[in-house]
Design a protein around this nucleic acid. Structure first.
Lengths: 194, 194, 194, 194
DNA sequence: TATGAATGAGTATTCATTCAT
DNA sequence: AATGAATGAATACTCATTCAT
């Protein structure tokens, strides 16, 4: 059996777990359900994960890190602060729209699991630092007033984006015009910061 | 036994439950822990609540409604849209600051419990309608541009307020200057909507 | 409060218990249900009965004894063995028809309760002795063959009567022509014993 | 693990349950007691049975059906109505004598459990139909009078047999001369029907 | 590696019984 | 005598985890 098979089964279980978590909630998800969804025996789970909670921790670590890289790429590909913010928001909404199970687990389930909190907290801090950097750039571009408290503002913006995800993807499960939503949000923010 | 004693025991159990839920999370909270914290026998819980889930439902119904009344009073006591929004945000932060256990349970735990969702959803809708009404008033006052999509904006604002609660009360457990935070938030929002 | 009031409340509880036992079965009958049906507080039960099982024991003792007296009277009023048997069977079916709750509890519930068994066993023995005495009389009358094993036969007859009660009153809840049924049964038995 | 092992454990639990039910009564039998008697963990019970009641239902279905097959074979192997009835009664007493636990549970416990009643009722109906068929054959043979009400008589006979089981096996726990008892019973019945 | 039968600790809930009023 | 709120022991059932195969 090749190494990629191990990675493969590890991934299959992780993906299955997310689907199960999203459908039933973490607490109503049993190891058996995850194993069944992954097409492996219950015991096999324990060859790849220490225990049930470890699945969530690994999910937060792996999938969280992966999606965060995409956010960073999106930001890097923007030529100025406004485009960077737009790209970030667009990437965020798009990625979570494409994978609603992941969105549900991220927004609702993960934050409560004790072992997951370090990674979640780290990602949250990095996310907000990204926002702060964008707005610092905006200040140097003259787009953002030097009077605003960026530490405070980055939280507001982070909350706004979160709410969009929560409202349109997690709760309402609506199809959203990502381009339009991202545009409106960026306009609102930059106007507020001008 | 006086009437207030019965109400008293019901309240004592509810308060104890909130503390336990906040400390351990709903799923790691046992009926025994709640009973012990309330200083009653396990069986006594069932004289006042149908079952464990019912405690959360009653909590959402009773405490949620009570706190929402305060929000409405705060809004009503404002003379114009800006003051109304300020009062709402101030009241929101203040009330959740005073009772962090309640904040934790509201923000993190309640939304996932199925039986609670009707009330949570109702409160969420009423909250956002309050915001929309404030901004409609703002439009008639000439303070808010008629071009903005109020349904979209109210979500952003709701998300921003939520994030303040989450960041400063639930996660960081910081003491926050409520007056300053409310002021900054209102300024940012009205500037963005101008 | 007069003495008969005590007897009265004792009786009311006993009657209520039988109704509850018949409706729910002994094991699904709670002291609370019995108290509610009797219109007294739960605690009041314990002023008249030692505990829940004691209700059943007292029921077996009191009601069993009472109904058994009627059977004896019925037998005594018959002028010969055939009439005595007819009267017994008629009285048995009639009394259990009139009070189906009592029939249900007697036939189905009581025999399993450990504390009740002494009385139940005693009544069963007395019942079968009554039958044996009738058949002994029948032998002296020349109506019953001297060759039959009366100890065995009395059991058969007892079982037959039981089955009539079970089939027509407890299970099927049918209205039965008591006169006809008693007649047929007596005829069958005496023919078999001739 | 061989197939018979699975069947084996299922059977072991069922047998253990019957013993426990017979000793303590269904309501005083705990799942733990059954598991201990079977030499398995409590949880193992639930790998083979849906819940506690399901054990009784399966018992009624499996053991009831099995024993009933023996009754049918016994009847079929008789060459005329009298021999058929004799064989049935003999088989009935013999089988219940050999397994008194089963007899106790069948006669006393099973009839009250709601989920068991369909099977119990079915078996009871089939049993009495068997009796009726025997007596119909007896009529065609000229052994049984055409005047008797067979629907009534089959109940009497069923009750008589039941009483033999109850009296000698369940209650008195006596050793009984099966050959003699069956013979007497058949004689009595056919004489009564002549 | 992979399996899945077996385990048994953990928990919500019920209800007979008590006792202060 | 009567009440009924409070008690807490008892028990069915779940499910994460293990381990012999």
């Amino acid at each position: 059996m090749r190494i990629e098979d191990k990675e493969g089964k590890y991934s299959i279980i992780l993906d299955s777990a997310v689907k199960v978590f999203a459908e039933f909630g973490v607490e109503n998800s049993t190891v058996s359900k995850i194993a069944a969804k992954a097409g492996v025996a219950d015991g096999t789970i324990y060859l790849y994960f220490k225990n049930k909670k470890d699945i969530l921790i690994k999910f937060a670590d792996d999938r969280g890190e992966k999606i965060f890289r995409k956010f960073e790429e999106a930001v890097n590909s923007g030529k100025d602060s406004k485009e960077k913010l737009f790209n970030l928001i667009y990437s965020h909404i798009e990625n979570f729209s494409k994978n609603k199970d992941l969105a549900v687990v991220y927004q609702c389930e993960l934050s409560k699991i004790h072992g997951c909190q370090p990674k979640i907290r780290e990602l949250s801090i990095r996310y907000r630092q990204m926002l702060k950097d964008i707005f610092l750039l905006g200040q140097s571009e003259g787009r953002v007033s030097k009077n605003v408290d960026l530490d405070f503002i980055k939280d507001l913006v982070s909350g706004s984006i979160n709410e969009i995800i929560n409202t349109y993807i997690v709760k309402e499960n609506k199809n959203i015009d990502i381009l339009e939503a991202s545009g409106k949000l960026v306009d609102f923010i930059f106007k507020g910061l001008g």
